[in-house]
């Protein structure tokens, strides 16, 4: 119960952070990506603010042998740079630039009830499922 409650609170804080920073508005995101236009640097401060907390506290948290309410840490272990990481990230960037939506703000934006965001999230899920099928074919 404590586990699920803390996960819910983490979700709440994350969603509140996205909304307070204005990142739930795709115009703020494309405004940042448009470096040759009238550059909106807000997103840089969002990433900076996030890293200001995660950079010092992640190593502190990981010093503990196990999380508070769970048996172990679920961390990625791969270190190699493969073509999937590179191609996938490149394609994600194209979609992000086209729409101004990355997964967090798109899902948080569902709260507005915008049908267009519902379509976007469904397309995103379809894209993930396509990638699963694609990886199976390899």
């Amino acid at each position: 119960m404590k586990l699920l409650l803390s996960i819910f609170i983490a979700g709440l804080l994350f969603g509140a952070g996205l909304a307070i920073s204005g990142m739930t508005d795709p115009a703020k995101v494309t405004g940042f990506l448009d470096i040759t236009g009238q550059w909106d640097i807000t997103l840089l401060f969002v990433m900076g603010g996030g890293l200001l907390v995660t950079i010092p506290f992640f190593p502190l948290v990981q010093k503990k042998t196990s999380p508070w309410f769970s048996d172990r840490y679920y961390l990625p272990t791969r270190k190699d740079l493969d073509w999937k990481l590179i191609t996938g990230s490149a394609l994600f960037g194209i979609g992000w630039g086209m729409s101004g939506f990355c997964p967090g703000p798109a899902i948080a934006g569902l709260v507005t009830g915008s049908l267009q965001i519902v379509y976007f999230v469904l397309a995103m899920i379809a894209g993930q499922l396509l990638a699963v099928l694609f990886e199976k074919k390899l």
Partner: peptide, 20 residues
């Protein structure tokens, strides 16, 4: 931006600390 970023960072630390 900074306040939102701090919240997002705190959420990430909380999730890692509580659930791994």
């Amino acid at each position: 931006g900074i306040v939102g970023g701090l919240l997002i960072g705190s959420a990430s630390v909380l999730l890692l600390a509580a659930s791994g």
